[in-house]
Design a protein around this nucleic acid. Sequence first.
DNA 1: GACCAGGCACATC
DNA 2: GATGTGCATGGT
Length: 228
Amino acid sequence: MASTRGPSTTRILHQYYRLMASHFGPTLWWPGDSPFEIAVGAILTQNTAWTNVEQAIANLKRKKLLSPRSILKCRTKELHAALKPSGYFRVKSDRLRSFCAHLVENYGGSMVRMAKRPLPELRVELLTVHGIGPETADDILLYACENPVFVVDAYTRRIFSRHGLVDPTIGYESLRAFFETRLEADVALFKDYHGLIVWTGKDFCRKNPKCETCPLASTLPKEGPRLS
DNA sequence: GACCAGGCACATC
DNA sequence: GATGTGCATGGT
């Protein structure tokens, strides 16, 4: 199925945003006290529930490990122990260190300095870091570096394909372009829109998969995809 | 006790 | 290029 195009889809995307926003209110997404903490959360939440990530970040804070240099300096065993609640602790320990090494080597450990790089270059650069894929890069670009990038995740694909707006097999970049070409490039809008998708996904796709009480229920096609 | 979660890298075909 | 697999914990 081809994606729908034109102003009508733009209106639909704004309608979805209004429906979710009026249900949940402002999300103030992403949780985190600093750009670096946001980047750490983005890596730790890969294929993992946020509740588990919170525990790992609390461990890092308690052990005073929530800085690029302290993560690079500390013993592997200690980092593993801190990351354990978030799962995949061996993998994530390596990925976190790769990101920290990149940050220290190229920006003196400063997220602010990194955020000053132009968006297209920074995105390509982040994707070269081991353990940073498209979604993690875009989380960092939008929430930690304040760039107008639309973050796509499993919930985005699930919700918008279920509603017949995109093909369920659509690739990451195509789905990102679907939103970015139809919405104004507004950092606050993109932040809140993604947050609302996550909240909708958690509260309804998972807990109430029949969609009856979902804020988007009124727009759900009754018999499969209907928009072409 | 099975199943799932806001991915990613790597191997194989 | 597409598909399959390993990685690990905590909540439901």
